[in-house]
Nucleic acid binder design. Structure first.
Length: 198
DNA sequence: CTCTCGATTAGCT
DNA sequence: GCTAATCGAGAGA
């Protein structure tokens, strides 16, 4: 299964929602210290634009944490949330425009034994069905924050998996009720697939 | 310095 | 459906 690693241009889309839709069906690959695992991206959320009240970079807020969102697309933004979870984002768009796509779920396609160990006691269906779970399953830690996605540690591949529009459901984003009207925007993309490859 | 709350999850009722 | 767990970022004094 030869995959084509995404290039810098693939991360350059200036529209956060289009970027979020684009990553559905792509393969998130992680070479961690304890081994390799990967999965098909099945759920994403778009964040970005300085007006998006749900985004960490709302109002062009630049802090030590959000600075990476202003980088040119193609780097990782990992942050710690709720005191115990790490959430993985794909930074997208041009320099100085804060945009990111939160990966909310993947379907594991390699490294099953490793993931089974990392997710001990959890059913396979819930191995990576949630943004915190994705990081737990693939071994993504704060070490991956700001990492280039064109390197050999964490990257995304296109293996020609086409996601039909009729199988993509759009809904408001999860857990952002504080964002007022922005919480209502349908910026969450879910691939409702009956059959995943592998 | 202090306080609040979060782009969540797991476990229990 | 309800909520404890758990801690750093960000804001305000």
């Amino acid at each position: 299964m030869a995959g084509k690693k995404l290039t810098r241009e693939d991360y350059a889309d200036p529209r956060p929602t289009r970027a979020a839709r684009f990553f559905l069906g792509k393969i998130l690959c992680v070479q961690a210290p304890d081994g390799y695992a990967e999965g098909i991206i099945t759920e994403t959320e778009a964040y970005g634009g300085t007006k998006d009240a749900a985004s960490h970079a709302f109002g062009n807020r630049r802090t030590a944490r959000t600075e990476i969102m202003f980088a040119p697309g193609g780097v990782a933004y990992v942050y710690f949330c709720y005191g115990m979870h790490r959430l993985f984002n794909i930074v997208t768009g041009p320099l100085d425009v804060p945009q990111a796509v939160l990966v909310r779920a993947v379907h594991i396609t390699a490294g099953h034994d490793l993931v089974r160990k990392r997710r001990a006691g959890i059913g396979e269906k819930d191995w990576a069905s949630g943004p915190g779970r994705v990081c737990a399953a693939l071994g993504i830690t704060m070490e991956h924050n700001r990492h280039d996605l064109l390197g050999e540690t964490i990257w995304i591949e296109d293996r020609g998996i086409a996601v039909p529009s009729r199988e993509v459901q759009r809904t408001p984003r999860i857990g952002v009720d504080y964002a007022g009207l922005w919480a209502l925007k349908p910026w969450r993309f879910v691939w409702k697939s009956k059959k995943f490859p592998l």
